[in-house]
Amino acid sequence: MSSPEAQWRAALAEGRLLLQRAPDGRVVFPPRLAAPGTGEVLEWFEASGRGTVYTLSWVNRKPPAEPYNVALIDLDEGARLMSRVEGVTPATLAIGMRVDAFVDQAEGAPLLLFQPVED
């Protein structure tokens, strides 16, 4: 048996976003050893990366540092996660916006981020 979290991070480092699915169809994130609530076996699958902004907040910093956003993203497959949407401003980022995942490798550790996308 290998660590689900380690498997997820290894995939992210390759640019892939993995999710898990329970026998009843529920999609699970963060990765777990077993399905929450039932303890059943989970199966990995690769997510499309497409999602919708569920809610968001802009965190203000002391100028000249720019504010940054924190968003909860609903992935099309059913999981919800926290992330940041790049390439947007307080005027353009909105609840309901369609977004697409990408993996940023710039900061050392691979980081899952999102950007606006036209469906």
């Binding site: 994130f29 965190v59 924190v70 996660l81 992330s83 609840i95 980081l111």
Partner: peptide, 24 residues
């Protein structure tokens, strides 16, 4: 560890996320 890389103010931003959705 899943949320921390996005630097939400703890615990404030979590409440902000709930507030924004309630307003919406």
């Amino acid at each position: 560890q899943w949320d921390a890389p996005y630097a939400p103010l703890f615990p404030l931003t979590s409440y902000a996320l709930a507030t924004a959705r309630h307003m919406h």
